[in-house]
Design a protein around this nucleic acid. Sequence first.
DNA 1: AATATATCTAACCTTTATGTAAGTACCTTA
DNA 2: TAAGGTACTTACATAAAGGTTAGATATATT
Lengths: 110, 110
Amino acid sequence: MEKNQKKIIQSDENCPVRKSLSLLGGKWTLLILFQINERKIRYGELKGCIPGISEKVLIQKLNHLIENKLVAKKSYPEIPPRVEYRLTKIGLKTLPVIENLTIFGLENLD
Amino acid sequence: MEKNQKKIIQSDENCPVRKSLSLLGGKWTLLILFQINERKIRYGELKGCIPGISEKVLIQKLNHLIENKLVAKKSYPEIPPRVEYRLTKIGLKTLPVIENLTIFGLENLD
DNA sequence: AATATATCTAACCTTTATGTAAGTACCTTA
DNA sequence: TAAGGTACTTACATAAAGGTTAGATATATT
């Protein structure tokens, strides 16, 4: 068991823990994914249910998640604009991870 | 609306996801916990199986984990010094979380 | 003409995280 | 006397993340 462990870590590229963390590990990302959850949600509404986040960071994180195919975006050609976000199939797979972290936090951290 | 609500939701104190992330979310923390795993391990050995980490960061993270009771440390009064680290009961509970992240990374990220 | 609306975009700054390199302590062995 | 082993510790520098403020857009409404 010990030898395999060493192999997993060697670089950022081939370490799945690092890859996951670099995508999901920021201050807001998991909260965004959790809020989107299984619904379609507009930008403004999403912003409204994540108090404290700045527009810059919200857009930045959404774009990053879109690039990595965890979130899909649909823009409607209207004025004022309307944009809907939803989780992709992959994005939906983060929900159990979030649940695990929630339980860990609730049960073990002060 | 803002002051009370903002404070409550924005702080790590009241959000279990944020609490978990602020403890586990850095670049090296989960790798350290995974390497310690179910064994006792000396500082130098641990360092040896996490290539690329600096001594400063390793010590810093270990101390942080000790403060938060995920890791326990035992020093032997010898020269040269000998120190052993192991996961506490709580620390062991991070192993499934790490496994989940690993699987997510392997299955879903390039 | 001014205002409202929703979704961004940019410039700038502060805070936090991580990296680098050198040094410390103490005893043992050569 | 010097070198070596182990586990740190410190000072300093850089990089990454996040926060603040202002503004761009394009149309409908007043």
